[in-house]
Design a protein around this nucleic acid. Structure first.
Lengths: 196, 196
DNA sequence: CTGGTATTAGTACCAAGTGCTAAAAAAACT
DNA sequence: AGTTTTTTTAGCACTTGGTACTAATACCAG
């Protein structure tokens, strides 16, 4: 009899969150209680059963994947996109993205979000970053919601290049900006013929 | 009886690939055969049952999520460092770091390695990236071992800035280079508050 | 001692299967 | 056609990881 029911349920929630693939039986033996107790706990906490949990994880993944192209490879969640024009993504900064010491987000996460978005906005099979200049304007903290906007500025069809401006904000304040020069295979663009 | 067994099995594989969440019963009615036939087909094609399929999708997702951008102190392994002077790290590019489509490493991983190294080489409590210009010189593939060298070029004590050049190579060929402007607290003059 | 909460036990049942056997149907041969 | 082979169905027992529900027991407090 370790601790109170409350404490067990707290740990239970944590454990399952941490690893949704765990069965009631495993949980029972882990906490030294009966399977029924675990079931009761799950009910009280309205945590679904193993299969449902797994299905949720899978479905989540699948949704994103099904949504056309390489959206699943994006850091942050794309919430709006007009191919070859603009795109918007959200990225919630969590504890794991920041330096422990000062709670400031590591630069490469912001870069990753911006870079991903630059790749995603390009309407092409292959888009690679060639160059980028970025500025980390203001520190981002855990808990911040970073909204990143990518705008296609320019296309050079001869050199297969696309130039993209990216700005990230938190509460309407710019925290990061960058210019990305992207390489693309084709000049395919259904609705426009930008060349410059 | 639509078509041959072969044809049905081809379609079956396709259907399941397309939507792993489908049950044998649904498949049976879709193809106008009995559930047993579907089971037989799955066996011959060694397609796992629904639950296993879902678990696979979920597990895959989970892996990716966890691995998406390692939050460890440094991306890549530091193999040599002289604080405030130079540092060297190794990063082995794995499948999870590349675009599935073309096997080319995603830019932000190279950036992350470089950025981490730039942070690490600075002998200070707090080091933040202020700006960076980077060039992705040559695509990096899964299996490549990226060796990244950071060299401290310059220090401006008044502005609490340090300038670092970073070059990444694979087999002695430059694949990435960048300049990083870093902010640091100490070194000369204390400054605890971050201003940009 | 009486209550109330917490825990455990036990039963029936479900979904979506596996594994196995056997029979019926269809197709292929000679 | 007659026989062999392949393909398809059917049926039953059993498995996992549960739900739903009932009943018993344990424990702690007033």
């Amino acid at each position: 009899m370790k601790r109170t029911k409350k404490e067990r349920q707290r740990l239970l929630t944590e454990t399952i969150e941490d690893n949704p693939f765990v069965t009631d039986e495993q949980l029972a033996s882990q906490f030294g209680v009966s399977v029924q107790t675990i079931r009761l706990d799950r009910m009280e906490l309205s945590i679904p059963e193993l299969r449902e949990r797994i299905k949720d994880v899978a479905a989540q993944n699948y949704e994103n994947e099904v949504k056309s192209l390489p959206l699943d490879e994006v850091i942050g969640e794309i919430i709006d996109i007009e191919l070859d024009q603009r795109a918007l993504s959200i990225f919630d900064v969590k504890d794991e993205h920041v330096f422990q010491r000062n709670g400031i987000a590591r630069g490469h996460h912001l870069f990753a979000q911006a870079n991903s978005l630059a790749v995603a906005v390009i309407n092409d099979e292959l888009a690679l970053t060639v160059k980028s200049n970025v500025v980390f304007v203001k520190p981002v903290k855990a808990g911040d919601r970073v909204i990143t906007k990518a705008i296609v500025r320019n296309r050079n069809s001869e050199k297969n290049r696309t130039y993209i401006d990216v700005v990230s904000t938190v509460n309407n304040e710019t925290v990061f900006k960058g210019e990305f020069e992207m390489y693309r295979t084709k000049g395919s663009g259904d609705n426009n013929e930008v060349s410059n």
